[in-house]
Design a protein around this nucleic acid. Sequence first.
DNA 1: CGAAACTATG
Length: 841
Amino acid sequence: MSQDSSNYANVRAFTALLQQYARYPDPVVLMYLHYTFIVHAVENDSNLHRHLLYSYGKSGMPMDALTIFWKITEPELTLWNFVIRLCAKHGENAVSFQLFIRMQVQGNLPDQYSYASILSACHFEEDLWNGKCIHAAILENTVAEDVVVLTALVNMYGECFSLDYANEAFLSMQSQDTVAWNAIITMNIHHGDCEFATLLYKTMQNKGFVPDSVTVTGILSAYANLATLNKGIQLHAQIIASSSKVNAIMITSLLNMYGKCGNISAAKRLFDGICKVDSVVWNAMISAYAQNGQGNDAIELFNQMRNEGVKPTKTTFLVVLEACTNEKAFVCGREMHLLIKQSGYETDLMVGTALLTMYGKCGFLEEAFHVFDKLTNRTVVPWNALIACYSQCTCSADAIQFFDQMLSEGLIPDKITFMNIFPVCSALATIAECMRMHSIAERIPERDDNVRAGLMSMYGKLGRIDDVKSLFYSCSCSASVSVWTALVAAWSEIGSDDNALECFNQMLVEGVLPDKVATVSIITAFANQCSLRRGLYAHACILGAQLELEIDVQNALFSMYAKCGNIDAALSMFKKISIRDAISFRVMIAIFVQLDNMDEAVHVFWQMLYEGMAPDDVTLATILTLCGSHGALSQGLKLHTCSIYMDNLDGFVIETALLSMYSCCGCLRKAWKIFETSGPKDDSIWTSMIEACAFHGEGEACVSLFGYMQQEKSIPDKSTLIKLLLACSHAGLIDEAVHAFCNFSSYHSCEMIVDHFNCMVDVFGRVGQLQEAVEMVKIMPFLPNTFSWSILLSSCRMFFDVKRGESAAASIFELEPENVATYVSLSNIYVTAGASDVGWS
DNA sequence: CGAAACTATG
């Protein structure tokens, strides 16, 4: 066989391979094939070049495609257009333009497809000038009226400049086609005008154009953004009825629509019935869960996705992290971090920001900062996320420091920055800081009514109603609903509920309808004043505004009824909410906990689990504490079992609560078990264990725990010391008490409080060392309070010491002349000492 | 075999 014919056979074989490849594109396989061609010296076949070029294009590798392209001598116009379009599609806009110029230099005149391709290389505002140049060239050309070119212009102006210009290009078409309609519809959706997009959709059909899958996709996202579930369902039904082929993109749009409209079960039914090889549909379903407060289902679905071998993408990380953040699922979040590291997305700005937000929401500020620190070319977005983390964890000073650091790095804060930093200033309660932030905020370009409202609520929280008012009156035009809300809240903050109500009325009079946020904050304001009458009034005012269906409003309403003392109304509202969220349950549980109604609290808690909602650790911990105080061991055990299956809970909080619950229910051994099996211990769990031992009279155990705690470098706080001293006192462990007391005072003398000394009075008094007890009262660096003397008095009574008892009683009378108990105690001393005849009456 | 404008999840 000659060299030529063998080469020919190779070319045919490789061509076949490449065609096969097109069905399952994979960059690694493609590069391997390319390498093999070179080895077999068939690489220079021009036919093969074309195949390779297209294959690289399909795999989304524009630069490799270009390398092949340059080897082709005198490529025809279609190939030029192909590579221009390919580079544009993958963000290589500059390369597209170079190709476009080079093509013409080599004597090829652009046709309508060339113009359409090069226009698609203009995506951003910065590209507008290029786009306009191309537009000018088109106007000189015969293709100026071509619908393809004009559609590309619609898109270019829509993405780089304004909807108006896009509309102009659309209207300048002599006749539109479906694709052109699709372009103008999607442009309106991208600009947020979904109502108009649906109107265009109707018009298009009236004019006889048949919507295709692209139209449907766009309209579905319009319905999603408008949250018009019924329209969405209707369109879904039409899709099914038309029995046209449903592609993955349409499925994704449907999932998104159901998710945004809050109909998770419909989304899940759809999802279960499709072929799930594409990560995008998984992402959409995970996101639907995450956005509807079902973070645990989102996480579970993600695990299923991995089990089925679907590769997570950047978006997967973003949506799963969102779920972890909402659920405070730290364990899962940390696993995600590992995966993200492996995928090389750790330093991606979006992923990094989502990751640091997750850590921050879970309360792990160090980890959050660590992620932040690794990000390069930081924009204002990760800074805002970092500041928000520290602000929400009430690390106000750090938040301010980061703010200043951000400024010194030359970044300009945006309104989100201020939305985060204003609450920090009110938390710090330093007026100088508030004014400094105020003056910086005055200088940012995008200050708007939300920034103004933020400022007003900052001053409002500090009670500076005059500053709030002057900001309100400095509005150049009529105040927006957020500004009105801030004013109402500020009046309410200083307890002037008449003014708050008057402002609310004034707002209604001026035709400003309360939105969701306004309604919630107004209802909450009245709830905090326990003003049922005003709360009812606010409730009545919003009845017409379709707001009573909003879950946040419903939560605020029933909580208001409870705070104002009308529990029955609260409960019946709670029961009537059709789609309750996790917040509804947490609020309702908190209400019952506050009422010390364990049965109802536990009942709502189980109901919450039954409806698929995850409790947070605070909710579970408060219920456990309630069970403890009611001695409800069997409920406590059930809750313990159930907590084992939740991974979104803060271990320390739950373990500490469990420990206390067992201790209060009399199971010291179970409390010990919790303590022993918990990992590294924080201060609160040490303290709880000491308290538990004290409660059960295990004084010696308290003392040794206290010792261990200090060995572990855990610093006992003042309340731990009190628990310990009480335990020692009950167990008569004088030396141990003295030791702990002296030890603590030598290291933390500034934390010593009068209660510590009172405990020591009790320690000595209880065993009859009355002289030492008196000394304790004398040497304390505080003025002894009634308790100090009362403790001494009761010891004197126990040991029949009339003289010291009289002197203690005299001191109490000085402090509290009306204290009847003292008379009783003293008379008891006289009686027991057989000295009732000493002349006191 | 292969061109073009409009398409989903964040």
